[in-house]
């Protein structure tokens, strides 16, 4: 302990007299305000204890929040009021000293860097270059594998789905879809058989199957055999941002994306007719086999989902 403290006396008030209006409470009726603040603190205290009690008996969530929130709120209001009304009203002032140093200091600082650093580095340019090169190379070399190991290269994954010639269309439980199953105006989401429960099957291969008539339905030229018995299949991935286009209006024959309201004409090759989607939904060529199962003729003829750089 400091020896000097024994002989200290309290510091006296400097600057303001005790009855200076700056030191007066801001409230016109300090006694009343004091009582109101005390009431706030009491209510806050009771509520905070109530919070503990509610927690102890595991009461409904809203009671926990109400007691805790109310308690903190009243304590806070009381404390603010204390500071605002019962403490010196001010206003007080503080001088603002310029942050900038004087010119001598500035020059000395700059000189220290330029002269000292320059003197050392200029004479050893090769060393500096080597050090910089080494650290730079380390930066690049360290960054590259870090990025590279984060994930696989895209390669062709965005261009293909898992639909192949002869793949059975199954529903989300893995049941094969057969031809009597959908009435006209019906919709279902199908996946390539075996992939209905995988991430890739759900996220990439998801296909929307609708039935719009009893005959082969031609949506566009070159797709004469793609929709046997009115069974039409489109990729369920919106060409805008990849949301599932799960919304089918069977009278308007529109497929609608719930995210940004792109609308695709189901009877005309899913050409977008409203909203931000730029391309038609890719159509999956179907056939119906001898047992009456709905199967794919091939993969989609173009990449599914949203646009990306490498997509032609």
């Amino acid at each position: 302990m400091s020896q000097m403290s024994e002989h200290r006396t309290p510091v006296s008030i400097q600057g303001l007299a005790a009855d200076d209006p700056h030191l007066a409470p801001a409230a016109r009726h300090p006694r009343l305000v004091e009582r109101v603040i005390a009431l706030n603190f009491v209510v806050g205290l009771v509520l905070v204890i109530g919070f503990g009690a509610c927690y102890w008996v595991n009461a409904a969530p809203w009671t926990l929040g109400a007691t805790m929130g109310g308690g903190l709120f009243f304590l806070g209001v009381g404390l603010v009021a204390w500071g605002k009304y019962l403490m010196p009203r001010g206003p007080f002032v503080e001088e603002r000293h310029p942050l900038a140093s004087d010119e001598v200091e500035r020059d000395a600082f700059a000189a220290a860097i330029v002269e000292r650093g320059g003197g050392v580095v200029k004479r050893r340019k090769v060393l500096g270059g080597l050090l910089g090169g080494g650290l730079g190379a380390f930066g690049i070399v360290a960054l590259f594998p870090l990025l590279r190991s984060l994930g696989p290269l895209p390669k062709g994954t965005l261009f293909h789905t898992d639909w192949r010639s002869g793949t059975f269309a199954v529903d989300s439980t893995g049941r094969r879809v057969s031809v009597g199953e959908l009435a006209i105006g019906s919709i279902m989401t199908v996946f390539p058989e075996g992939l209905e429960n995988t991430d890739r099957g759900q996220a990439v291969d998801q296909t929307i199957l609708i039935r719009i008539s009893n005959e082969n339905f031609v949506t566009q030229k070159g797709r004469e055999t793609w929709a046997p018995m009115g069974y039409l299949a489109y990729s369920k991935l919106c060409t805008h941002l990849g949301c599932p286009v799960g919304l089918y209006e069977q009278q308007l024959q529109l497929l609608v994306c719930p995210c940004h309201q792109s609308m695709f004409n189901a009877t005309n090759g899913a050409i977008p007719e409203f909203g931000p989607a730029p391309r038609p939904l890719p159509q999956l060529p179907l056939y119906i086999d001898a047992q009456g199962y709905v199967r794919a003729q091939s993969d989609y003829h173009e990449p599914v989902g949203p646009g990306f750089w490498e997509r032609s």
Binding site: E181, A183, G185, Q251, L252
Partner: peptide
């Protein structure tokens, strides 16, 4: 029955 624009859910 799929009233109006609602798709109909039958066999599925």
């Amino acid at each position: 029955t799929g009233p109006a624009n609602m798709p109909r859910f039958t066999g599925n």
